[in-house]
């Protein structure tokens, strides 16, 4: 069944792409095909492929062996994902090593590290990253 849903998602992406491609203006360069030409080909192919996957999913021809994710693991993963998004949203605000330290410390905890290990590892990593990128690679962080 999972494959069936994935097939439907693929078809939807294809249809969306086709619709968007249709709104592109026509080309002005001689013989150069319109900007929407290739996207349409890709869109149609995606719809077709999605259809095949949907059919396979319904017929259960290919069953992807899937281990259910445990609730706790899913929660931990969601935590890390949330932390990543928060960290990126806060990029440029505050002070890089400090932001990074808190971010990494929380990540470690979400990954089931012991607090002491998490603290040491986060300190080392945030300072090392800051030093590596600002001093050696001359990248401007904040």
């Amino acid at each position: 069944m999972t494959d069936g849903i994935l097939g439907i998602i693929t078809i939807m992406i294809g249809v969306f792409l086709f619709h968007q491609a249709g709104q592109l203006p026509a080309g002005v360069l001689l013989f150069a095909l319109d900007p929407g030409f290739f996207p349409r080909i890709i869109a149609v192919t995606l719809v077709a492929l999605g259809g095949i996957l949907l059919q396979q999913g319904i017929k259960k021809k290919v069953q992807h062996t899937e281990e259910p994710i445990q609730k706790e693991t899913a929660l931990r993963l969601a935590c890390v994902a949330g932390l990543l998004i928060a960290y990126t949203l806060l990029w440029g605000k505050g002070f890089f090593p400090l932001n990074t330290f808190f971010f990494l410390f929380a990540c470690h905890l979400a990954m089931k590290a012991k607090p002491l290990l998490a603290a040491i590892s986060s300190v080392v990593l945030s300072v090392a990253t800051y030093y590596l990128f600002t001093q050696i690679f001359r990248v401007r962080l904040f």
Partner: peptide, 24 residues
């Protein structure tokens, strides 16, 4: 042993705040 981690993290935090303030 449990406190070592906290002490390290707190002292580092303070150090960074001082550094950060200097930049402002």
């Amino acid at each position: 042993m449990k406190y070592v981690g906290k002490i390290i993290s707190v002292s580092l935090l303070v150090a960074m705040l001082v550094l950060g303030a200097a930049a402002f």
